[in-house]
Amino acid sequence: MIHTHTHTRRLALAAALLALPVLASAQEASPPLGGPLVPGVCMLSRDAVFTNAKVGQSANTQLQKLAQDGQASIEAERSRLAPEMERLGLRADIDPAKLSDAQKAGLQKLQALQQKAATLGQSIEAARGRAIADISRQAQPLIAQAYTRHACGLLLERGTVLGGNLGNDLTAEVVTALDAKVTTVQVSLGAPGK
């Protein structure tokens, strides 16, 4: 009896999984949720502002370049170390107690390179955070102006809205205003002001 019940549940689960693409396509074909415009309720997608504004695109391009340059530097060092590591016979499964002095020195070089790569990743993430903060500071007064202009009483993150009338979406307006105000921001791996 238990075996039959389990088998029946498995068949039901398999049938449900097979129906998912049909349900998904049926949902895609259904009309979007609409409804009346709710006065005072506005939306904004901060991600879309950062992605679509020229200043966000500039920051993203600079961050990609920093990451590519850093990765190229790490790879060049790794390539220079590879013959030495091979000559020393260093492997991940080697017993540290059996390492020669030369192997220990080689392992330290490898660990230093790994630390350099980790530090580079942290530096790029910090630069990204500083760029987002800078763009946010520049966008905030523009968001406030759009908020006031539309007589908003509540501003929601657009990504959390499941449906409804998106007539009070401030995103495009803020992107346009931000593009008129600034098109680039300086992105560097150093601390602010460096």
Rank of each mutant, 00 (worst) to 15 (best):
T183R: 12
D47K: 10
H7K: 13
L113D: 02
G40M: 09
L189C: 05
L110V: 02
A144D: 15
V38D: 02
S25K: 08
T176S: 14
A131Q: 02
V55H: 01
A72V: 03
A177C: 07
V22R: 07
A180T: 08
T183D: 14
R10A: 13
D93I: 06
E86F: 01
L170I: 03
V22S: 09
L37W: 00
L17T: 09
R9Q: 12
G190V: 07
E157I: 04
T160W: 01
D47F: 09
P21N: 11
V22L: 15
A26Y: 08
H3A: 14
L162N: 07
L23C: 11
V187H: 00
K194H: 11
R158Y: 04
E77Y: 02
L120C: 07
R130T: 08
N165Y: 04
P141I: 04
A72I: 03
G40N: 09
G153L: 07
L110G: 07
P192K: 11
Q114V: 07
G163W: 04
G89C: 11
L13Y: 12
P141W: 03
V182S: 13
G153Y: 01
A48E: 13
L90A: 06
D179H: 08
V187E: 00
K116G: 03
A151G: 06
Q71H: 08
N168Q: 14
E173M: 03
D101A: 15
S25H: 12
P32Y: 10
E157P: 11
A191Y: 04
S79K: 15
P39R: 12
L162R: 09
D69K: 06
T171A: 03
I74C: 04
L20I: 14
G129V: 05
A146P: 00
L107T: 02
Q108V: 05
L110M: 11
G153T: 13
Q68N: 13
R149H: 08
L90T: 05
L88S: 01
Y147F: 14
T148G: 01
A177Q: 10
K181Y: 05
I124A: 06
L99N: 05
D179N: 15
A16V: 10
I143F: 03
L33G: 10
P83H: 08
P192A: 13
G34F: 03
D134R: 09
